[in-house]
Design a protein around this nucleic acid. Structure first.
Lengths: 200, 200, 200, 200
DNA sequence: GATGAATGAGCTTTCATTCAT
DNA sequence: AATGAATGAAAGCTCATTCAT
């Protein structure tokens, strides 16, 4: 096999580890998920898993980067359209809730692993650098809206906190089974609320 | 010592355990905080701590109830005034952020312990019953505003998610040290955003 | 209250502790039964219980003596009759099995506590001195039978082991729920077997 | 090393754990023997011991099965001979007492661990399934004797209780140091008693 | 005599990580 | 690269016993 293919194969395995660990961490929590758990689900040995990620903490950090990139990429596609800010908000909310429904592990990981295990992410994910993929795109969306005069010019974090907190909060409520409706039901209301809050 | 005083003393000790455990859980996380840690800080023995709370999980649940009641009581005071919905929003945001500054452990506990350790709270805190003290008051605020025609009539959870998520998200960002300003700096912006989102 | 009555009262309490501990030890085992368990069932404080018995081990030893005396007394009544050895065997088997049915804790205590927690009884119950009340009466029964020519003259322990082991074994089997019949069902068979084994 | 040898090695280690735990449980009792005690005597780590047996209780159950099989196998050899019932009884008694002398831990385990720690064996050893290896052979011995007309036809449990209780009782007495003679001394007496009890 | 809060050593079990193969 | 047996520190929890009241 060529060196290229070997490297490729390794990259694929790396990603499959990330995917599997992501699912387990998101569903069972970081501390309740053991390295043997992950290895078992992957049908590989624990020893070999350590050839790909030097520690459980490092694995957790790689996952958050991967997740943030993933979400960021999708938001970029929205940003790249010519839609109005109001429409973009609707699209971002839709996209977020769709993801929460179809790949809940990503959002759950953010809420239940990243957000709550400070000690793990302290070293290497200071500030929000491990999550910059997502933040950057929200920032671009917001700046574009302000530039075009559609959104009120306000502190970025006031706006970012609204987005991140509101959407995250709704997914959390869904996870707790307290929402009487499916998550999609709330898309219109929430998009409208966000737009009303941010519009010029 | 009279029976009354003994019971009182026990109640005080119970509360001091809650306070100390709250601080440790909030700052170090639930799993990183050990029972010996808590006992040591309280200068009491591990065994005796178990005379007050039968398990670490039960302790965690009692703390969230205590915290939710605390916060709920303060919001009730706002609800009981004659202020307009707009003013009430400003007051609730202010009191939330003041608390986040002065007793950060309460908000942090909510964000980093309750919200993220599903397994721990699953049994006994189903739905959001352990946190109903807080939710109830937000519900009253919202219903009052709708009744008086100040707030738009929309799904309660769309409104509740906005409050809880937005405020929680801001405190989280502060905790991550990514906010360039003190938390109070954002009170006006955020109150305005919430009001714009909810107003009739 | 007179000194006599006080001493009497204390003796009564002592016995009630023995009775209660006997039941708990027999049903749950020595190590699974805690001093607080016993105190709770007696509605007295642990501290006070220690005024009557200086340690859990000492309590266990007093119970075996008490039990052995109890059983010995009943066998003596059989020994004191003019019945034949064959009849006496039947009576002893009957009284043992009746006791196993009506006061199972005594027999169970012997089987599950005394017999199995060597460490506890090592110091103070060497040999079988704590159980001599029972042994003595069996010895008398056996000697009488040999003297009268009804029973074959053999080593005492060969005979004693038969009695104690056989009866104990049957009660154990009953306790394990493996006997298809009530314990009384076996009285005739077993009496006959013992008599056949021992007769001259 | 080949896969075969690895599996073999693991099986050997498993058995050496059983042997060591058997000795410790039998001599010190189940509750007084700790997992670290066992690991230490085996010169292996506590954690690794748990790779072989998932809990202390499971280990205890595996030991009783192992012991019962061992004893059953030896009795089968007696059953497979053409000896008379009277001779077989003598052989079984001899075999039991020889074992009690040479491998006392097996009999002691039965008496002091299995028989007395109901809670431990309740789940998974209901009835006497963990001990069926031994019971089955006694049953075969008895049925053969009845079929050939040598033994009286009586309830199986009346006969089984005699065997198990009597032999166990004698070993217990030996363990308590109350027997004035070596255990072999009693073989003839006891065999005769059992035969007299059971013969047609 | 009576109380029960307090102690703390000790238990079973878990799991991130290593390393000989 | 791949395996998984092995390590051992550390966790949550228990309970016999003491002692101030």
């Amino acid at each position: 096999m060529s060196i290229l293919k070997i490297a490729e194969k390794k990259a694929l395995k790396r990603e499959s580890i990330i995917q599997t660990a992501l699912q387990l961490f998101a569903s069972q929590g970081f501390h309740k998920t053991t390295i043997p758990d992950i290895a078992k689900k992957l049908k590989m040995s624990v020893g070999n898993l350590y050839n790909y990620f030097a520690s459980k903490d490092i694995l957790a950090k790689e996952i958050i980067k991967y997740t943030s990139e993933s979400l960021g990429t999708k938001i970029r596609e929205v940003n790249d359209t010519d839609a109005s800010s109001e429409e973009k908000i609707h699209q971002i909310v839709t996209l977020y809730f769709t993801m929460a429904k179809e790949k809940p592990e990503m959002i759950e990981y953010f809420l239940r692993v990243y957000l709550s295990n400070r000690e793990v992410f302290n070293d290497g994910c200071e500030g929000m650098i491990c999550v910059s993929g997502f933040i950057t795109e929200i920032m671009i969306f917001f700046d574009d809206g302000v530039s075009s005069g559609e959104l009120r010019d306000q502190d970025f974090f006031s706006a970012f906190g609204l987005f991140m907190g509101y959407l995250g909060g709704m997914v959390f409520l869904k996870g707790e089974d307290v929402l009487p409706q499916e998550i999609e039901f709330y898309i219109d209301d929430i998009s409208r609320n966000i737009y009303n809050a941010l519009k010029a």
